[in-house]
């Protein structure tokens, strides 16, 4: 759906994005992670043809965004961190104005989308009177018109209350499952990305550290947990033998290179420990992300 090929962008002497390449498969929810200033917004700008890369190509739906902007963005919807509208116009007029840049507005589709985001009772009111949550819902409504294949979201839940974040997440999941939408979004909220995304890209200082399916990849994949009769003794023994390390609470640790959960279990049994439970630890995106950030450049996922 999206193909970034060697994207480099400088602003003055600062390199915002440095030779970034990855692919976003059709139908997935793809998260873009990185610290402030990592280059996430620049990359999203390049995807939408708002930022011209110094080097490289951006293809959306097989079309070059710079050369064939119309074709590339014809089936793309976008939402930004701070959704901006013409506050002095009604929600409906705002949607109409924005949608007409993509083509004629289908009245039935418009009504359906407004109902979907729950704005039907306020759509005729001036946007200036909307709350932040309502503005985000309006942003989502305009992004879904006309019906897109790809949704690009730059920090879509930023500033929303917990209920609003929950609603937005559920709506994105529904859109992905029911409409088959490809969703590409950047967020600081790792828990949110973990819940939504099967694939991620991690940026640090404009460089790509990882891109692809994140489950079971990288150092976080070596996390395991176990429960034994003499827990602390077992942990010390494993650590001394160099089989596992970095134990935290709840018997959670990391396998040493070359070790598997299976070898750890056998090693413990051979030494007379009684194992209640042992297995790979639930992979946590935070751990994965931090590992990636510490580990450094490029790690290609599946």
């Amino acid at each position: 759906m999206i193909s970034l090929q060697g994207i480099t962008k400088r602003f003055g002497r600062r390199i915002a994005v440095d030779n970034v390449s990855f692919e976003v498969p059709r139908g997935v929810i793809f998260g873009l992670l990185g610290h402030n200033g990592a280059g996430k917004s620049t990359l999203i700008g390049a995807l939408l043809g708002q930022v011209f890369p110094d080097r490289g190509r951006v293809l959306v739906g097989g079309h070059d965004v710079v050369r064939h902007r119309g074709a590339a963005l014809a089936r793309v919807g976008a939402i930004f961190e701070a959704s901006s509208f013409y506050d002095y116009l009604s929600g409906e007029t705002n949607i109409r104005i924005l949608c007409e840049y993509s083509g004629p507005v289908d009245e039935t589709e418009l009504r359906d989308v407004v109902r979907l985001v729950g704005l039907e009772s306020r759509i005729g009111d001036r946007v200036g009177t909307y709350s932040h949550g309502m503005r985000q819902r309006l942003a989502l409504a305009q992004a879904l018109l006309p019906r897109p294949d790809l949704l690009i979201l730059d920090e879509p839940t930023e500033g929303l209350d917990p209920e609003g974040m929950h609603e937005t997440r559920n709506l994105l999941l529904r859109l992905n499952r029911q409409w088959g939408l490809t969703i590409f979004f950047s967020s600081h909220l790792l828990a949110e990305v973990q819940q939504l995304c099967s694939h991620v890209a991690v940026l640090r200082s404009g460089r790509l550290l990882f891109a692809g399916r994140w489950h079971g990849v990288g150092p976080a994949a070596s996390a395991f947990s176990f429960r034994a009769d003499r827990q602390s003794e077992a942990e010390s023994a494993l650590a001394s033998a160099g089989i596992a390390l970095d134990f935290a609470s709840g018997g959670r640790g990391r396998l040493a290179p070359g070790q598997t959960v299976h070898t750890v279990a056998r090693w413990l049994i051979e030494r007379g420990f009684e194992i209640e439970h042992i297995g790979p630890a639930d992979t946590d995106l935070e751990a994965f992300y931090l590992d990636m950030i510490r580990q450094g450049p490029s790690h290609e996922g599946r």
Partner: peptide
């Protein structure tokens, strides 16, 4: 400044036409 230009330019509109 208001950010509406980014909203508009996320659409398949030609800059010159706009």
């Amino acid at each position: 400044e208001d950010g509406t230009m980014r909203m508009v330019l996320s659409r398949p509109v030609a800059r010159l036409g706009l």
